[in-house]
Computed example of a mutant assay.
Amino acid sequence: MTDTYTLLTLALIGATFVLAGTAKGLVGLGLPTVVVGLLGQVMAPAEAAALMVVPSLLTNLWQTAAGAALPRLLARLWPFLVAVVAGTAGVGALLPEAAGSWAARALGAALLAYAAFGLWGPRLRLGAKADAAVGPLAGLAAGAVTAATGVAVMPTVPYLQALGLEKDDLVQALGLAFTVSTLTLGGVLLGGALDGPTAAVSAGAVVPAVAGMMLGQRLRRRVDGVRFRLAFFAALAILGARLLLVA
């Protein structure tokens, strides 16, 4: 793990968090995806994931608390959330043995899958009976992807979208799922990728991340949402393809 960060590296990290925060402010998600996707081009994915822990945790806690549906969501989603913790911790225990190129390729595959779902994914719907069986499996898969890549969106986002939640409940459910993922990932990385210098930089990255979110919220009123989503997912697909081909 890096003991010191140069001014150039810190500037790159700050700019990345502004961009990632802007994406989250515009579409409600994407901060870890953008951070790990971009910084993963110039550093190990585990280090990039460690840098996003504090900003992601704080913004997702705020998103989780902003609504009255939390008790209902916890009652419905706890099997999925418990499985996320188990999958993240289980696969995370294998990370020290994983080669950097393998982790980079896994991140590239996750970004491509997320981009493909965002661009062409079908609208899935799960009934109560199907959800009882699919929830734990989706949680284990989400935890494994999170531990391997630092990105918690697949298959978390399509699974939660398939539950047919109301718009505000879906936003709160995403915040809850990402909070659990980030907390567990932070525990896995603590003392390794998430060492003292990296934790300090991660804490400092809260400022550009929040500034980006505020900018994104303002731009949301002016930028066409459909065009932005197309550009966002196309950029993720390019990043993912580059990681798969170059790593």
Rank of each mutant, 00 (worst) to 15 (best):
W102E: 13
L77A: 02
L185W: 03
V134E: 03
I238Y: 11
D168E: 14
W78T: 05
V82F: 11
W62E: 09
L163H: 03
T2K: 13
D168R: 12
S101K: 14
G67N: 06
T182F: 03
N60L: 00
F228A: 14
T16E: 14
G21N: 09
A193W: 02
A83H: 13
G204I: 13
A152Y: 02
G216R: 11
G225F: 11
A141C: 12
T22C: 12
R242F: 12
G90P: 01
M1E: 00
Q172D: 03
N60M: 05
Y5V: 08
A11I: 15
G100K: 12
T179Q: 07
A44P: 10
A211M: 15
F228I: 10
A98H: 11
G204Y: 12
L163G: 09
A106K: 06
D169F: 06
R125F: 04
L163I: 06
G175R: 05
M154K: 00
G121E: 02
T146I: 12
L107I: 02
I238H: 06
A147Q: 11
V151C: 00
G191Y: 04
L29C: 00
P122H: 05
L112G: 01
T149S: 07
S56W: 01
D195L: 14
G175Y: 05
A138N: 08
G175M: 05
G150S: 03
G212S: 08
R125L: 03
G135P: 05
G100D: 14
R72P: 04
K167E: 15
A86D: 02
A15Q: 01
G196W: 08
G212F: 11
G87F: 04
A15D: 03
A44T: 09
T179I: 02
T149Y: 02
G121I: 08
L73F: 08
L190W: 14
R221Y: 09
F232T: 06
F80P: 12
G186H: 15
A199N: 09
G135W: 05
A109Y: 00
A203I: 11
L112A: 08
R125V: 06
T16M: 08
G139Y: 09
L81G: 11
V226Q: 13
L61E: 01
S101R: 13
Q161V: 01
V226T: 13
A138M: 12
V27Y: 07
G92Q: 11
L137M: 12
V226R: 13
A93E: 11
R72H: 09
G67H: 06
E47M: 13
A205K: 07
V145E: 03
L185Y: 06
A98N: 13
K129N: 14
A50G: 12
A203S: 09
P45L: 12
P155H: 02
A234D: 05
A199I: 07
T179V: 00
F178N: 04
V18F: 10
G14P: 05
P32H: 06
A48H: 04
R229Y: 04
L111Q: 08
V27P: 02
